[in-house]
Each structure stands twice: as structure tokens, then as C-alpha cells.
Design a protein around this nucleic acid. Sequence first.
DNA 1: CACTGGAAAATGCCGC
DNA 2: GCGGCATTTTCCAGTG
Lengths: 98, 98, 98, 98
Amino acid sequence: MSTLAGSAQKQLKQIVEQIERLEEEKKALSADIRDKYLEAKGLGFDVKVLRQVVRLRKKSHVERQEEQTVLEVYLHALGMLDEMKAVESEVERMIAAE
Amino acid sequence: MSTLAGSAQKQLKQIVEQIERLEEEKKALSADIRDKYLEAKGLGFDVKVLRQVVRLRKKSHVERQEEQTVLEVYLHALGMLDEMKAVESEVERMIAAE
Amino acid sequence: MSTLAGSAQKQLKQIVEQIERLEEEKKALSADIRDKYLEAKGLGFDVKVLRQVVRLRKKSHVERQEEQTVLEVYLHALGMLDEMKAVESEVERMIAAE
Amino acid sequence: MSTLAGSAQKQLKQIVEQIERLEEEKKALSADIRDKYLEAKGLGFDVKVLRQVVRLRKKSHVERQEEQTVLEVYLHALGMLDEMKAVESEVERMIAAE
DNA sequence: CACTGGAAAATGCCGC
DNA sequence: GCGGCATTTTCCAGTG
């Protein structure tokens, strides 16, 4: 038949409600995170870059290096690596100047 | 200058840590939700359908409000809050007239 | 190794250039669309409302298909293509029963 | 009154249709671009990195440098710059080794 | 020029 | 284990 047994129906309802409860909590946390970024913005931080930092910290050092390496190979193939190198030496300079 | 003031540096650290804390909690909730679906699956429910049910319920919750909002924009744009009926049928007609 | 073979390098260049070409065309179309809205504005239409009309029409085009898809999933999951009516009302009931 | 004059109505219809036509073309281009990436993937390229390359080429050298600088300041504040530096010297090595 | 909302991209999940 | 689909996140254009 095409309807669920009464017990199954109850189970289903419970499960759906529990899931919805969890999703609400998750949504609330998303809002909190968004607020944190806004707070940071209010303090003068660059939100976009801040997100980048959080993302970078999530990735392990190894992953980062791997991805970076592939990128450099491609840029090199396109003759764009010299340009990038200029940016990086600027960074080097910054580090040295501290 | 190329470095943050000590106070800003502390703020930044705090913010990043708070964000990471919140993201962990969020991730834990995602895991809980996934587990709920697995539990349901163990009870014989079709997970894909279950997800669709949850999605549908969410949509029907949200959508009414949205449609209301759209209508309000129309009413506002046309500046005729007391000729609702006419506006609505005009909109219907425009959409239908493809 | 850290460099691409000559052939791969050529391929990469070609692909990147083709993508960039396509993105330019896409950008040009975006500009055309923007111009159309401006033209409409010049003729006295309310651009915001006009955008909403276009969006609504798109949605109503897409949404039917989606709903169809949802229905198909249900039918499939329940393996009862010839008891459609029963399934539909079951779904309605489940959604309504919040 | 709440209905458009016949002429305005015709204009509106035309404009909407023209816009929809343009949006379809735009959508087709998006599909073409997606296909290009898939083609590249078939040839063994890393799509994610490829997208990054295209993005980088779009940004001017100056923009790139500015954004990079802010990022480095934040990473420095978090004591993450040494790590990153290691990655970059790896790149340096690659460049030297060619 | 900050905000909102919509498009595109990245990620995660499920099936095979 | 991978490829496709759905969700989530990120980005960008348009608006006030």
C-alpha cells in the first residue's frame, strides 16, 4: 500500500523534526560567524582577506604547498611566473624590513 | 606600515580563534545531521526522499514570505495600495503572456 | 618534474585563451542586457520591477520542471507509478503536518 | 489607472523578450566555458588551479600585489608567515632550477 | 560606497 | 574511489 504504517509515520515525523532542529542551530551558527566578520570589519579589518586567512589555516601546510606547486607550473607554462616573482620579492622585502 | 599594532594583532588573533571555534561547532552539527539521515536509513527510510521532504518543508516555509515581498514591491512601485486586485491580475497576465 | 611538456604547454595556452575569449563575449552580453534595462528606463519603465518580472518568468519556467523531478523521485522511491494519486496526497499531508 | 496603455504594453513585451534572448545567449556561453574546463580536465589539467590561473590573469599586477600585501600582514600577525615563506622559497627553487 | 541580492564556484555527499 | 548532484560559500553587479 502507499501509506506508511502508523509507527513508521511517527518515526518519520520525529526524524524530520530532529533534523530541522539541528539545521536551525546550524543556521544560527552561520549567523554568528557572519556577525564575527562584520565585527572584524567594524574594527577595520579587511573581511575578504580575513576569510582567506581562515581558509589558509584550514588547509594543511602540505596541501598548500602541493596546490601552489601546480599553480606555479601552469603560470610558468604561460610565461607569467616572472611577474609573480616580483610580487613575492616584495613580500620578502617586507619580511626583511621588520 | 607593514605590521599591525600590537593591539590589532591581539584582536586579529582573537577574532580568528572565535571564528574557528564557531566553525567547529557548525561542522559538528553537520555531522549530527548526517548521522540522523543514516539513522533514518537504518530504519528503512529512503534518504534521498527524506532530504527532499526536508527541503520542501523549508521552501514552503520561506516562499510565502518571498511572494509577499514581491507583491509589496509591485504595489509600492505602482503606488496604488488600494487597487491590489487590478495589479495582481496585471502581473498574472504579464507572466502568462509568454 | 616541474615543467609541462611543450605540447601540454601549447594546449594550456590555447585553453586559457579560448576561455578568456568566451568570458569576453559573456561580459559583452552582460553589457547589452544592462543597456536594455537602461533603454527601458528611458521609456519610463521601472527597472527594479522590470528585473523582477524577468526573474519571476525565469522561475516559473524552471520551477515546473523541478517539481516534476521531485515527483519522479517520490514515485521511483515508492515504486508505484500507477498509484500516483495516493502518493501525491501522502506528500501533501506530510508537508502540511508540521 | 492600473493597466498599461496598449503601446506601453507592447514595448514592455518586446523589451522582456529581448532581455530573455540575451540572457539565453549568456547562459549558452556559460555552458561553453564549463565545457572548456571539462575538456581541459579530460586532458589532465587540474580544473581548480586552471580557474585560479584565469582569475589571476584577470587581475592587474597592481591589484594582485595590494591584496597579497594585506594578506601577508595578517599572516605575519598570526605568526604564519614563516610557514608561507617556506612555500615561496620552494617556488624560488623551481624558478632557479629551470 | 556600503548593502542587498543573485550568479558562480567550491565543497561535501551519495550512488555506482 | 570517482563522478554527478545538492548545498554552501564566495563573489560581483546593481541600488540607494
